[in-house]
Design a protein around this nucleic acid. Structure first.
Lengths: 116, 116
DNA sequence: AACGACTATTCCCGTCAAAGAATATTTGCG
DNA sequence: CGCAAATATTCTTTGACGGGAATAGTCGTT
């Protein structure tokens, strides 16, 4: 699977990720903020960790969980593949391309690639 | 939930979305391409449709399913909130913004898109 | 070493969702 | 109107997953 999306399917995990956007947090604090019991938080964090969304830094007895950038990058790259679908700017881009095609003439391309 | 992510958690649905990237497809063709039985394809399409990822155009007895741009946009916007996390270029950008703010005086346009 | 704070793991249970098979529904055509 | 193609829906079973409660593990302090 291209990106570990399924880990975010769970609402509480999405909330955890949202919370971690504000910076690394220890398990207990996450539980407080989201009104979740500690074991559930640990379990969700485990899933998120195995999916690559978070990582833990050990500080004394605490584990400070923080977001990892990689899956976000991956997701962004995946979205890029669909850009022509949803990006409004694609239309402008298409127009420009069309214009270039006309200016250049079709079929033979006499200019070649010597645009530079 | 911000975006209908859970619908994409299912591997086969992710595959269906991937297939539809190549253009609208009728149910039967999707089943062929992905080696899925027709009822499952219909069921998955139903979920995707209710989540807003696809829409169907009726052509004779066929239903041609196509991707809808909205959820992709939504997902992109969600990603934007995490940009400082994963986008390496964020640092440069922040510098530019800072520079503009200084030059212009009062701040403006807090959420502009990058012009690539 | 013992204790306390913090976190992880295990076990049980209820729920939900996906697959399979069978059937119903829609639409065009003769 | 009745048939065939294409798709949707129902029913059932089974496996996965989340929550609760209890327990185990880790680390610093004394």
């Amino acid at each position: 699977m291209l990106v570990a999306l399924s880990a975010l399917a769970e609402p509480n995990r999405l909330r955890i990720v949202g919370l971690l956007r504000g910076g690394p947090q220890p398990v207990g604090r996450i539980g407080e903020r989201l009104s979740l019991r500690q074991p559930q938080v640990s379990k969700h964090l485990r899933v998120l960790k195995e999916a690559g969304w978070v990582d833990a830094e050990v500080v004394a007895q605490q584990r400070r969980y923080a977001l990892r950038p990689e899956p976000f990058l991956e997701l962004q790259q995946w979205l890029e593949d669909y850009r022509q679908l949803w990006d409004a700017r694609f239309d402008e881009l298409a127009a420009v391309v069309e214009e270039l095609k006309q200016a250049e003439g079709k079929g033979r391309a006499p200019h070649g690639k010597t645009t530079k």
